[in-house]
Design a protein around this nucleic acid. Structure first.
Lengths: 125, 125
DNA sequence: ATCCGTTATGTATATCTTTGCATAACGAAA
DNA sequence: TTTCGTTATGCAAAGATATACATAACGGAT
């Protein structure tokens, strides 16, 4: 280690959280809903999706409903009944949203990482 | 208005929130603490700062203490007593942090705005 | 016609966060 | 040495969020 040791190491992490909101400010889509949609896409049902994401069915269902109501369109085609009980399938708009959101997150991850490096440099100087 | 009207306008806003945390994840500095520090710098006391920022003294004090404990150094020189009761003045490290944070926020504001434009374009296509 | 497991939703419970007192400690200035 | 307004901190109360539980509705497959 260098002359001054690690005395002024800036040992903190930079975190961020994204969400989409309506003009009036209510929350719509956060990372949580994003991963929920990914899981629904994979598993084919909301219930199954909640089991892997860890949130309660009640909340996941509410979040999804909220998101759809504020976006103004459905994110999943929902069917009830049948031997399997029913299923949830992403709409084409949901697919589009997932794609767009993934690109956005990647872009911002990069920006945050770079900003963090600069922050750190400043704080350690 | 154009041929298809505004039917697929993506009428949502992109929001984000930044915070610094310790390695183990506890929150340290959020925008709230940042504006609190700005206000302290301006007003010279924590109490006065809470009056303009709107948070309760109890919480502001706790947040500040938490931030200092996790950073490992003081963000304010605190004095009690005197006709004026006491005061809080930013440390040099706090000044440095404010500067760095402001730069960081500006950078990310730009990145988010750009990312939002792309998101919007994708969602409206 | 019956069954099954999922969607759908209300309500009560618990958990987490913030606020609101209350009250002590402090110490420079008058 | 008394005074004043701030820092400092515990604890109860209030608010906000999330979870848990209960229960209905549904309808394709058997």
């Amino acid at each position: 280690m260098g002359k001054r040791g690690k005395s002024n190491r800036f040992n903190v992490l930079l975190n961020y959280k994204l969400w989409l909101s309506s003009m009036s400010g209510e929350g719509i889509i956060s990372g949580e809903v994003y991963t929920l949609l990914l899981e629904i896409k994979d598993k084919g049902s909301l219930k199954a999706a909640t089991e892997t994401t860890g949130l309660s069915y009640r909340k996941a269902w509410g979040d999804l409903k909220n998101a759809e109501s504020l976006l103004g369109y459905e994110l999943t085609h929902k069917t009830r009944g049948g031997k399997d009980g029913g299923r949830s399938v992403l709409t084409s708009q949901a697919h589009k949203l997932l794609e767009a959101y993934a690109a956005l997150e990647e872009k911002l991850d990069d920006a945050v990482e770079e900003a963090y490096r600069e922050l750190k440099k400043k704080m350690e100087s």
